[in-house]
């Protein structure tokens, strides 16, 4: 074979780490389970800092987040002080916001699911629908990814699943144990946002990427950073933690 015809093949191999070239892609099931469980497990409690930057303002929130299973979560804002105590409770597909200033709970109507959650680039739908990569998406086998280096898994929404995303691409590390990048494609198949994962630390007895950076394609200049400050997993949480009466008693 002449050299010029070998060049493209050689160039394709150059960016991939040697380990990836030799290794097999981790099984799809292992990856989807990892994505579903990494930040939640059976139950979890985390302290998170959320920084939202737009062309008009910067905003910083400090939150505590409880989860139990895949359909119950509670988020309480601790900072800034003027918003402290504001809480969001999710049970199944239902979402409530508790407003301490007026001591009222308001249920978010279905028509507001795509609206911003607490003025951030997250939507209410993100809190409700981000349920299970294993069950809601059909992922193909991993393929080598160049940027970032790792394995690329493409998941297409299963028929009948209602949600914002038609397709999600995940890039995970060589072992398939940590996410590196996620690309979200809307129902028209267009790239809508990317989320990158970095600063891997040991937290709650497991290795986690503690910094997530979300960028929206249709809102250039909008960047949101989610920083894990602490996390505990598989802690005992009573069902009452996720009840409306408890929400209003806080």
């Amino acid at each position: 074979m002449r050299l010029p015809s070998l060049l493209p093949a050689l160039l394709l191999l150059v960016p991939f780490p040697a380990a990836l070239r030799a290794a097999q892609a981790p099984p799809v099931r292992q990856v989807t389970r990892m994505l579903d469980d990494l930040f939640r497990s059976k139950s979890s409690l985390a302290e998170v800092e959320l920084v939202s930057r737009t062309d008009t303002q910067d905003r910083r929130l400090k939150l505590r987040m409880w989860t139990k299973g895949q359909d119950r979560s509670l988020i309480i804002i601790d900072e800034p002080e003027r918003d402290a105590g504001t809480a969001t409770l999710r049970v199944g597909n239902n979402l409530w916001n508790y407003l301490p200033k007026i001591a009222r709970t308001i249920r978010v109507p279905p028509s507001m699911m795509l609206a911003s959650w607490m003025g951030t680039d997250f939507t209410n739908d993100d809190l409700v629908k981000d349920s299970s990569y294993e069950h809601d998406f059909r992922f193909g086998p991993g393929a080598p990814s160049r940027d970032p280096a790792g394995w690329l898994y493409t998941g297409v929404a299963r028929a009948g699943v209602v949600g914002r995303w038609q397709k999600i691409e995940w890039v995970v590390d060589a072992e398939g144990s940590l996410p590196l990048l996620a690309r979200y494609f809307d129902r028209k198949g267009l790239l809508a946002r990317t989320m990158s994962f970095s600063r891997v630390e040991r937290m709650g007895g497991r290795l986690l990427p503690t910094l997530m950076v979300l960028k929206s394609v249709d809102q250039p200049g909008h960047v949101m950073e989610l920083r894990y400050l602490s996390a505990r997993f598989d802690i005992p949480l009573s069902d009452d933690t996720f009840s409306l009466s408890r929400l209003e008693r806080r």
Partner: peptide, 16 residues
């Protein structure tokens, strides 16, 4: 009537 929204300074607006 209870109202909830986003205030211009980014905080959470609420009022009765």
């Amino acid at each position: 009537l209870a109202l909830m929204g986003q205030a211009a300074d980014g905080s959470i607006a609420s009022g009765l």
